[in-house]
């Protein structure tokens, strides 16, 4: 795009985001610009619109368009046991601490279609902790949450999941947890008994529980710094004393206002622990 085309595009993008917020109360105003531009260009092609103003007109007048647009506004790319070394680090640093609690709550923030929630449930089953754990898996994309709830994934993804699981230090076989049928893998309902999938926005909602572990990976990269700060503040407030926070391999708390509330547990795999007296102003 030329400079003037880009200027128009950005004006229309801001108006579209404001319109979605005003009409539907989904707040994308703190989303990082570069990635949002890219996904809105894809949306223009998908919905055959020549400009974002035209797209905005449809989003305002056809509520079904919002549902369709959610797949462009949010990112639903995930794998089971993505970054196996992260799960190894959880087993090494976090699981021993989790064992000391009689009951556990874990928050998977931005769970999308559920891959990370099921990975966590399998890890906890292997470690003998699932029965005493409640996993809150939250996202703003209702359709993604429905898929997560169903726990059904294409069979052609299972080889990759299996390899990741093996490299994560898994002590069981991934095939123990799903049934293959008609090109799909249906994950065991007993895993889901301990998972609550729920609508929650890191941009507009508040803390809903006290948890021992928050895992929020490759979500913060889509936020600008002030929205990142809001989200990290929620995680801090949700975590119990000395609770753990895991974020994505290329994300960092360095630029956050709340970085002083956490200490590094595993620098390479982005595991942090809430300080004893974080956030109480002392």
């Amino acid at each position: 795009m030329s400079a003037s085309e880009l200027q128009d595009f950005d004006i229309e993008l801001q108006l579209l985001i404001d319109a979605i917020y005003l009409k539907y109360h989904y707040d994308f105003r703190g989303y990082a610009q570069a990635s949002l531009r890219r996904r809105m260009r894809a949306a223009l092609l998908r919905f055959n619109c020549s400009s974002l103003s035209q797209l905005q007109d449809r989003v305002l007048r056809e509520p079904a368009m919002l549902t369709a647009m959610m797949d462009f506004l949010t990112v639903q790319v995930s794998d089971m046991f993505r970054d196996p070394a992260y799960y190894q680090a959880l087993r090494r640093h976090v699981v021993p601490m989790l064992r000391t609690y009689p009951s556990l709550k874990i928050w998977i923030a931005g769970c999308s279609t559920g891959e990370e929630a099921y990975s966590m449930a399998i890890l906890l089953r292997e470690e003998g902790l699932l029965d005493r754990t409640l996993i809150y898996a939250t996202d703003i994309n209702g359709q993604a949450l429905q898929k997560a709830e169903a726990g059904i994934y294409d069979l052609d993804r299972i080889a990759g999941f299996t390899e990741n699981h093996r490299r994560s230090g898994g002590s069981s076989s991934l095939s123990d947890y799903y049934m293959a049928a008609y090109g799909r893998a249906v994950f065991d309902k007993s895993l889901r008994r301990n998972i609550v999938f729920s609508d929650h926005s890191l941009a507009t909602d508040s803390v809903f529980a006290e948890v021992q572990l928050v895992s929020c990976r490759n979500v913060l990269i889509y936020f600008n710094r002030s929205l990142q700060d809001r989200a990290i503040g929620l995680f801090r407030d949700a975590l119990c004393r000395k609770g753990f926070l895991g974020i994505g391999a290329k994300e960092s708390l360095r630029f956050s206002d709340h970085s002083n509330d956490f200490v590094d547990v595993d620098r390479e795999y982005r595991l942090y622990q809430k300080k004893d007296r974080a956030g109480d102003g002392l």
Partner: peptide, 21 residues
């Protein structure tokens, strides 16, 4: 660019990574 992430540049200028498709 790190493996398995898209590398972008964003207003700042700053690095923006994405795990998009």
């Amino acid at each position: 660019a790190p493996p398995d992430y898209h590398l972008m540049v964003d207003i700042g200028p700053q690095i923006a990574l994405s795990a998009d498709e």
